[in-house]
């Protein structure tokens, strides 16, 4: 199968029906959160099947953070695996974070201290999950608001260590940018620390800037210019990948979203039209 590349859109309940009815040009794939579809019927399943008839569907989980310390939830992984098979996703992604402790779920993506202990936990969990779901898995770097390390670039080194163990990354460019602004580092330096051959997919999104300057990763705003610039920088070094526009909150009219997707397409086409930049690789 040819590797999936191009630009895609997060498939969200609020705009799903219109997106299906219009089936506009220029969408190479859509992405779903499997938690919203596992063991769920009714209109959600119908929409999912309509999406599958039109586009390749990628899956992006929210609740199997690789930093969790309790054993993986085998029952959930069984239902998840069935769903991944149903939509035939070429790969699945989860976050390099934790989302609870024991049997308690916070329903948020909480940051991990980049330490050897965490790396062991995350690597073990990553490969166990990949074995269980029986298809390629990747981890997403998250945005965070409380400092995890004296040097914020330790996060990139931590991701790279996991890559060196054999994991693939679902690189969220907006998250790198948000963290760079909140913790004061050059986001390109962060990208330069990553082996971009290990990138299977990327995310771009918008975020909120609070009055005190703190940036919160809301996925509720248009993608700002510096995030597009960082994406272009990354794509020039990685070559073509699947790039998703994430919009989860404050979802605008579909035309507005499609206009943003066209802008993403322009950036994408421009970046991959140039010869690949192979400098500054780890």
């Amino acid at each position: 199968m040819k590797k999936l590349t191009g630009v895609g859109l997060g498939f969200r309940a609020k705009m799903a029906d219109e997106l299906i009815a219009r089936s506009p040009e220029g969408i190479d794939f859509v992405e779903i959160h499997p938690e919203n579809y596992v063991s769920r019927g009714g209109i959600f399943r119908r929409r999912l099947h309509a999406a599958m008839e039109r586009w390749p569907v990628l899956t992006h989980g929210l609740t199997c953070g690789f930093g969790q310390t309790e054993p993986v939830d085998g029952e959930y992984l069984t239902s998840l695996t069935a769903l991944l098979q149903e939509v035939n996703t070429p790969w699945h992604s989860e976050h390099l974070c934790f989302g609870g402790a024991g049997d308690t779920f916070v329903h948020d993506l909480l940051p991990l201290p980049p330490r050897p202990e965490t790396l062991e936990v995350a690597a073990a969990r990553f490969f166990e999950m990949q074995d269980r779901i029986g298809r390629p898995l990747s981890f997403e770097n998250v945005s965070y608001y409380a400092p995890m390390s004296a040097d914020p670039l330790d996060e990139a080194r931590f991701c790279q260590s996991l890559i060196e163990r054999g994991a693939k990354i679902m690189l969220d460019v907006n998250n790198v940018y948000v963290n760079s602004q909140n913790f004061g580092f050059d986001p390109r330096e962060w990208i330069n620390l990553i082996d971009l051959d290990a990138v299977v997919q990327m995310h771009v999104a918008g975020h909120e800037v609070r009055e005190d300057g703190l940036r919160i990763d809301t996925h509720g705003e248009p993608v700002p210019d510096p995030v597009f610039e960082l994406l272009e920088y990354t794509l020039r070094r990685s070559g073509p990948r699947a790039v998703l526009l994430e919009r989860d909150n404050n979802i605008p009219e579909l035309d507005t979203l499609l206009a943003e997707l066209s802008r993403l397409r322009e950036v994408y086409d421009r970046a991959i039209a140039q010869p690949r930049n192979l400098e500054a690789r780890p």
Binding site: G67, Q68, V106
Partner: peptide
């Protein structure tokens, strides 16, 4: 910063308690 003597598990428990206590 996260205290170095706090294990990953203890750190996660602590954060969850901060959220729900």
């Amino acid at each position: 910063m996260i205290p170095a003597d706090l294990s990953l598990e203890a750190y996660e428990d602590h954060v969850v308690a901060l959220c729900f206590s």
